[in-house]
Computed example of a mutant assay.
Amino acid sequence: MTDDGDREHRYSEGQGFDDGYDDFTLEPPELKVDPSKVDPVDSRVLADILDRRNVDRDDVDVTSLMEVGLSYMQINRFEEATETFARAAQFAEEESLEAQEAWVNKGVAHAELEEFDEAIGAYREALRANERSEHAATAETNLAYALWEFGEVEEALEHAERAVEIDPRFPQAWYNRGFFLSERGLHEDAVNAYDNALRLGMRNADILEEKARALEELGQLEEAEEVQAEADELREQAEQEMVEEYDAGP
């Protein structure tokens, strides 16, 4: 078994970034920007363009702006991503799904920078837009994680609970709920939460290790060892796949 210690919460954010954003572009047509004259990693270009022209909300393609932000995320330009998602939220219809998605993504970008206070604010804005939409469970789950990182453990559990109430089929929400319950010593409830996440398809080494720890705390040592062995096997498989991909080259 692994030592509890000051372990990091291996958190699965579940915000659903698509891996399909392979091309980086700055060409929302409504902005009338010549991409050949724009440095795509200039962190101020979008803000400058929008501020300079005082663009009307109807003249901005928010979807294209969101894709720019996601492209920044793909190349780990998180500061630029926060600015771009803020612009998307500004020009989206208030309380729309687009606005909510922009706020959620902005929070994720801040979390990547470990700016958890800003992430908390962004997730709260997302929930202010709509507390029951398709993005609300993700916002609640991510807010719970940011609050935990910020030291607000009790409130983190409240939002983890709310996430599973909104979408009981969201495995990342169950995983986080299990983690926060375990942190409070409620290991039996934590195991049940982990099992829900596993039943919903979230099977990886991280969640199995957390379940093994909770089982160990409950004194169920034999089952804990079995779960830990499965976690070790999955981690070894993942490491072997990484080695094989590296050896295969591009």
Rank of each mutant, 00 (worst) to 15 (best):
Y11C: 09
V227S: 10
E188Y: 10
D58T: 11
S182I: 00
I166V: 10
P29W: 08
F78E: 08
A129Q: 11
L65A: 05
D34V: 10
E13Y: 07
Q15T: 15
A86E: 15
R203F: 11
A86D: 14
A119E: 11
L50T: 06
Y21H: 03
F150I: 00
D48W: 04
V164I: 07
I75T: 03
P28H: 02
P40S: 02
N204K: 06
F91C: 02
P171K: 13
E112A: 15
R184V: 05
G20Q: 02
F17A: 12
Y21C: 05
L70A: 12
A205M: 03
D59N: 08
T138K: 11
D19C: 07
E112S: 13
S71H: 12
A122E: 12
N204M: 05
E154I: 07
W103A: 09
V62L: 06
R203Y: 09
E79R: 14
D247R: 04
T82A: 10
E222T: 05
V164D: 04
E223F: 10
V60N: 04
F116T: 13
A137G: 07
S71Y: 07
D48C: 10
D117Q: 13
W103L: 05
D19V: 11
L26E: 07
A109F: 10
R199Q: 14
Q100L: 12
L50E: 01
E161H: 03
R10K: 06
